Computed example of a mutant assay.
Amino acid sequence: MKNIARTLASVLVLTYTASALAQASCSSDGILQPVAIFERFISADCEACWSDAATPAPSATAGVAVLDWIVPGKAGDEAPLSAAATNDALARLQTLGRKPPVTTDVHTAAIEAATPARLRVAHGMPFNDYLGAAIAFTPVQRAAQRNVATPGAMDFYLLLVESVPAGTEGTKVARNMVRNMLHGTWEKRDKLSKKEQMKWMETRSIRIPEGAEAERLRMVGWVQDAQGSVLAAAQSTCR
């Protein structure tokens, strides 16, 4: 019965998303796109890593999307940070070809788009522990007018992030804790019209984990090509 209720909630959120996103109350509209992604992977076993005032940070924060992944530790549910640990962190590390860290590991990716592009992320309001979320990738119009070849297969990442202010939850630095992740692949669509090929969009429901504070949630997303180069990134804010 619980699974049926959860499925129904997911369907309702998807229905609700279109009107909620149309209001653009929580989106990346009007926000400068990040020029780099800075990912911190923290072992759930390492409580000191979370509270460390000398936590690794980008040299310049402007234009950088900073993410904090809590990686499941060897202590399992007994690990100090296990409540925020997610298997998505393990999946992300595997994609990057890295092992789970004992303390903290850092990965930085610059936006390396050969063709100018825009990315939009947005989400609606919480509904039965879910958010309706969307990500849309569009090469800029001037690129389309030059008949620039459309990208091939691309991976998209859409992350539900909880912003944790410095001085709260035991952290001395501001955190952007990854709470959930949507990941998928967009294939090149040769059978579609040129206009249709120039835009990709995904609309999904995403679960809010237990313990997350809804008012601190936002979306961070990016699109990368088959070689792993990031083509565009975006992060939302609520107005």
Rank of each mutant, 00 (worst) to 15 (best):
T171C: 13
A136Q: 13
D88K: 09
A166L: 14
R118L: 09
D129K: 03
G63L: 07
S163F: 11
T108K: 05
G97Q: 10
P58W: 11
S193D: 09
P126S: 04
R92F: 06
D88W: 12
V164E: 15
L119Y: 06
R142T: 06
P72E: 00
E78L: 15
A114W: 02
D77E: 13
A75L: 09
D52I: 04
V161M: 05
P100S: 03
P72D: 00
T108F: 01
A134W: 04
D68Q: 14
K191R: 06
L96N: 02
D68G: 13
L131D: 04
A54P: 03
A83R: 08
G63D: 15
H183M: 13
A57K: 11
A114T: 10
P101I: 00
T171G: 13
N128Q: 12
A54T: 10
S82E: 09
N180A: 15
E47Q: 13
L131W: 10
K74E: 15
L119G: 02
E187A: 05
G97L: 05
A114D: 05
A166I: 11
F127H: 13
E187C: 01
G152F: 00
T86Y: 07
P126Q: 03
V148Y: 03
T86M: 13
P72W: 08
L119K: 10
K188Q: 04
V140I: 12
V106Y: 09
P80H: 09
R92A: 05
L182S: 08
T103R: 06
W50A: 09
T55H: 08
M154H: 05
L93D: 00
D68S: 14
L159Y: 04
G167M: 09
T185R: 10
A110H: 09
T104G: 00
D52V: 07
T168P: 12
T55D: 08
L119C: 09
R120Q: 11
